[in-house]
């Protein structure tokens, strides 16, 4: 039995922002619900009001603008990303990371925005968005702001979002189109499982970016490496940036070992 709450499904953006302004301190936004409903069921979250964003006009799916890039809207699911040919053609790393997230039927519901707002260290979409230099367009009744994902995560399950704010749009910049990328995720089984560690590598025009999941309180980005960096240099930079812990999934030492292994393998594969 889920704890009791009220439910609202606003149809317009202004209705949504008003609801958040008035009830933000005890409300939770509902997208795919694959984190939120599990948290409510487990008693970790007890919102008085659940605000479903999927019926807000203009909040569905993906949009593409040649100058700006790719927009992922609040109702865009992981499978929407996987079905989109423009994503595969321009930002293959997004598709590779999406493919590794949860199971097929969860991907039918789970949204990209829900994944980053949930801000788990093991988020599978964060590495791709970090590597691609994506940004979050955030709105509230007070106004709008734009935050790069490298500044978005502030701790385990914590982000820069205030209680009355909504993440309205993720923008993957057009300048990142054509970035080559790969993601390696260590799991206990070949089927669906949360990551033990994950490493994403992206290369474009002589620049190398590496992002790591499950290796620190937030997803980690190592930017600014030159495209000519050697395997050892890349490994050293990544190991200096991560701070994994031992937990139920594995030890800190094993995480460090596998992060190094994945960085080495991906660097070799993506020369």
């Amino acid at each position: 039995m889920l704890h009791g709450f009220r439910y609202a499904a606003p149809r317009s953006r202004s209705e949504l922002l008003d609801l958040l302004a008035e009830h933000g301190d005890h409300a939770k936004v509902l997208a795919g619900g694959t984190d939120l409903l599990v948290n409510i069921r487990g008693g970790n979250m007890k919102p008085g009001l659940v605000i479903d964003v999927k019926r807000v006009e203009g909040y569905g799916g993906l949009a593409w603008d040649p100058a700006e890039g790719l927009s992922l809207l609040p109702a865009a699911t992981i499978n929407d990303v996987l079905r989109d040919k423009r994503v595969r053609a321009n930002f293959p790393l997004l598709a590779v990371c999406a493919q590794d997230l949860a199971s097929y039927q969860i991907r039918n519901r789970a949204t990209v925005i829900g994944n980053v707002v949930n801000a788990s260290p093991c988020s599978d979409m964060a590495p791709a968005l970090l590597c691609l230099g994506a940004r979050a367009e955030i709105a509230s009744a007070r106004g709008s702001r734009s935050v790069l994902f490298s500044e978005f995560f502030t701790g385990v399950k914590k982000t820069v979002l205030a209680k009355d704010e909504i993440l309205e749009r993720i923008v993957v910049p057009a300048s990142a189109a054509g970035t080559k990328g790969e993601y390696r995720k260590l799991k206990r089984i070949n089927g669906h499982d949360l990551g033990i560690v994950g490493v994403a590598i992206a290369r474009k025009n002589g620049s190398l970016r590496i992002a790591v999941s499950s290796a620190a309180p937030t997803p980690v980005l190592v930017a600014g490496l030159p495209g000519t960096a050697s395997v050892d240099e890349a490994v050293a930079a990544v190991l200096a940036a991560v701070s994994p812990i031992s937990d139920v999934r594995c030890t800190k030492e094993y995480r460090l070992f596998m992060i190094e292994t994945f960085v080495r393998r991906l660097m070799e594969e993506m020369k």
């Binding site: 409903l37 069921r41 039927q105």
Partner: peptide, 29 residues
């Protein structure tokens, strides 16, 4: 499981599979 892990609750929702333990009935309106 009631938490998205096992798939025993899978139904089609507008033609796509979902874990019905993680969908609210009000969302099905």
């Amino acid at each position: 499981c009631g938490a998205g892990e096992c798939g025993a609750c899978t139904v089609l929702f507008d033609g796509l599979t979902v874990n019905s333990c993680m969908v609210l009935a009000v969302e099905a309106d």
